[in-house]
Structure formats: C-alpha cells, structure tokens
Amino acid sequence: MSIIFFMIGISLLLALGFLGAFLWSMRTGQQDDLYTPSIRMLLEDDAPETSQPQSNA
C-alpha cells in the first residue's frame, strides 16, 4: 500500500517538473515561431565558397 503513495508522489513531482519546463519555455520565447523551422529546409542556402586547388610542390 505504501508503494502507491510513493508512486503518486513521484508522478506529481514529474508532472510539476514538466509544467515548470513548459512555463520556462513559454517565458523565454521558445514557442514564438513554430512555422519557420519547418520550412527552413526548403529555403536555399548561400552558395558554397569555391576554393582553389592546392598544389603539392
């Protein structure tokens, strides 16, 4: 019977931890722009720089 109280206590601590992480992410702006990261792979990157071949002299 005591294991039930232990498990309820652990689950409440875990739930409070997730709630704290969610509130922290909302307060620091982690959830502000959810659209741009999903289309970032479709945008073109800058052209890679071409380097001159090195000669082995």
Rank of each mutant, 00 (worst) to 15 (best):
I8L: 10
I8D: 02
I8M: 09
I8A: 08
I8V: 08
I8Y: 01
G9P: 00
I10T: 11
I10Q: 08
L13H: 01
L13R: 01
L14D: 06
L14S: 09
L14G: 06
L14E: 06
L14V: 12
L14T: 07
A15E: 00
A15V: 02
A15T: 03
A15D: 01
L16A: 10
L16S: 08
L16Y: 02
G17C: 04
G17E: 01
G17T: 02
G17D: 01
F18E: 04
F18R: 08
F18A: 03
F18P: 00
L19H: 06
L19D: 02
L19P: 00
L19W: 07
G20V: 05
G20Y: 06
G20R: 04
G20W: 01
A21L: 15
A21P: 00
F22N: 05
F22A: 10
F22Y: 15
L23Y: 03
W24H: 08
W24V: 12
W24C: 05
W24R: 04
S25M: 15
S25G: 15
S25W: 03
M26L: 15
M26H: 11
M26F: 13
M26D: 09
R27L: 10
T28S: 05
G29R: 02
G29C: 00
Q30E: 12
Q31W: 15
Q31D: 13
D32E: 14
D32T: 07
D33Q: 02
D33S: 03
L34K: 04
L34M: 10
L34A: 05
T36N: 06
T36Q: 05
P37M: 02
P37L: 05
P37Q: 03
P37Y: 01
I39M: 05
I39W: 04
M41D: 14
L42E: 06
L42S: 07
L42Y: 11
L43R: 07
E44I: 05
E44L: 11
D45Q: 14
D45K: 12
D46L: 09
D46K: 13
A47D: 13
A47W: 06
A47P: 01
A47T: 04
A47G: 01
P48E: 07
E49C: 05
T50A: 15
T50E: 14
T50Y: 10
T50V: 14
S51T: 15
S51C: 11
S51F: 15
Q52Y: 11
Q52K: 13
Q52S: 11
P53H: 04
P53L: 11
P53I: 10
P53V: 10
P53F: 07
P53Y: 04
Q54D: 14
Q54S: 14
S55H: 07
S55L: 08
N56Q: 12
N56K: 10
